[in-house]
């Protein structure tokens, strides 16, 4: 979809969150001079076109007890990338799965996925299990657990 100035205003207005009141879209409209029907129509169009990936709750994994947050990186031969990426993406415990560029010679890994769990031991056990069940023994991987988290916020748009 082509976004107009009004859309960008709407995008900026709701980026921090929807108002928690019984007519949130009317409330947003009031702030930026649009009627409720227009706000609903534009937000729906953004969801339909994928400008808004999801509308709803964004959780804080850490505060929900998911403190073992592992980034698992794989050095996958290029010709197997799609096969392995699709396999990993389909597993329940994996919350993101991306191809990214290698940064040779320092960084050989080209497939990244995230696993959130409550304990490191369990997450590692799960990774061992998926390596053997998915036939990934010959693909080098590394597990990078997160330590301190310095900053977490959504991207800002103006």
């Amino acid at each position: 979809m082509v976004l107009n100035d009004q859309d960008y205003q709407l995008i900026a207005e709701i980026q921090g969150g929807l108002p928690l009141c019984s007519h949130p879209y009317a409330e947003i409209g009031q702030r930026i001079g649009l009627d409720e029907a227009t706000v609903i129509e534009r937000i729906q169009a953004m969801v339909d076109s994928g400008v808004i990936k999801r509308l709803g709750i964004v959780v804080r994994h850490h505060e929900l007890g998911y403190t073992a947050n592992a980034m698992v990186v794989w050095d996958v031969p290029d010709q197997r990338l799609d096969e392995v990426g699709e396999k990993l993406g389909s597993l329940d415990c994996i919350t993101l799965c991306y191809q990214r560029p290698r940064r040779l010679p320092d960084w050989p890994y080209n497939l990244f996925c995230m696993i959130h769990g409550q304990e490191r031991g369990k997450v590692l056990g799960y990774i061992d299990q998926l390596v053997s069940s998915q036939g990934l023994d010959d693909i080098p991987h590394k597990v990078l657990f997160s330590g301190r988290r310095f900053k977490q916020r959504g991207a800002r748009y103006q």
Binding site: G16, V51, R54
Partner: peptide, 22 residues
């Protein structure tokens, strides 16, 4: 209680015309 980070939209940065990288 900060169990939720936000309640609202998650945007597709590239489709908004923005840049995003790890």
């Amino acid at each position: 209680n900060r169990q939720l980070s936000r309640f609202g939209p998650m945007y597709h940065a590239e489709r908004l015309g923005g840049g995003l990288s790890l």
